[in-house]
Design a protein around this nucleic acid. Structure first.
Ligand code: MN
Ligand code: MN
Ligand code: ZN
Ligand code: ZN
Lengths: 134, 134
DNA sequence: CTGCTAAACGCAACTTGGTTTCATTAAAAA
DNA sequence: TTTTTAATGAAACCAAGTTGCGTTTAGCAG
């Protein structure tokens, strides 16, 4: 776990290790609030948000906007580098349990855009019912 | 314009006509703030938000979450009814001019989900460069 | 091991998009 | 024209996230 931080050349601190641990143990993408719920430590709000920003910029995690506008965070599985994420997988949001998971193995299909439009990236969020809630 | 309101069985008011006018004249999806910028009337914040909610619930407009978390609103072109939108088109966000447009003619492709997942709806947002900014 | 320094932290205060409450007004049906 | 019900508007509120700034500390050099 600490190795991830060392690899990315950022200082190893308790807060960072803790947030990394929580993220790594989570099966779904989680919010700032969930991180606070899951920790026994006293984590400062600003530090948590800054840590998440750092992780995202370093390509350790990526963020997904939830249905209600708040940001969810999830580990990057593929090779993501500084500011260069490779996360073109589909996200699934369950309408029952209201969790969002990364479907790392489901790629976003390419679409035919009208003339003149050029794609850099895309996000596909599928809403429905997850296996657990079925 | 007023006819839309009558059809949906909601009262015809100046605020509603104005917001409807601004939305109908806009080429891209717009935010609450843009509505305030484009009106000469003094529109109350609460009323505007409530109006947008009403319009969305009635199937007159639909909302798209922008990159930075705020809600954008755009006319529904197809047959949308109360709480039953039929807006499975792609949205395009231009990274240069930072506008989001509905690509009404580009359908969201279907994806093969892992076993146990059931889809109700999906949202696909493509980021890139629009024709004007090319 | 001991400084040194840039990076990280932490508190308070702030910003912002959006909502709640509740009293007042007005559209439109009777 | 009256009545009813939906819509409005002002104030206060809320929650997610940010800014400013002084303090601490990880990790490197000596
Ligand atoms: Mn993901
Ligand atoms: Mn649209
Ligand atoms: Zn579920
Ligand atoms: Zn553009």
């Amino acid at each position: 776990m600490e190795e991830i931080l060392r690899e990315k050349n950022i200082k190893v601190t308790d807060t960072r290790k803790e947030i990394l641990r929580i993220l790594s143990e989570s099966k779904s993408a989680i919010s700032y609030n969930t991180i606070q719920e899951k920790t026994a430590l006293k984590l400062d709000k600003v530090t948590v948000y800054r840590t998440l920003d750092t992780f995202e910029n370093k390509g350790i995690i990526h963020s997904i906007p939830s249905e209600d506008g708040i940001k969810l965070y999830s580990f990057c599985k593929d090779d993501c580098h500084d500011h260069d994420h490779d996360d073109n997988h589909v996200h699934f949001n369950c309408e029952m349990c209201n969790t969002t998971v990364c479907l790392y193995h489901v790629d976003i299909p390419s679409v035919e855009l009208p003339k003149g439009y050029y794609m850099h990236s895309s996000k596909l969020i599928v809403n429905g019912i997850c296996p657990e809630c079925r």
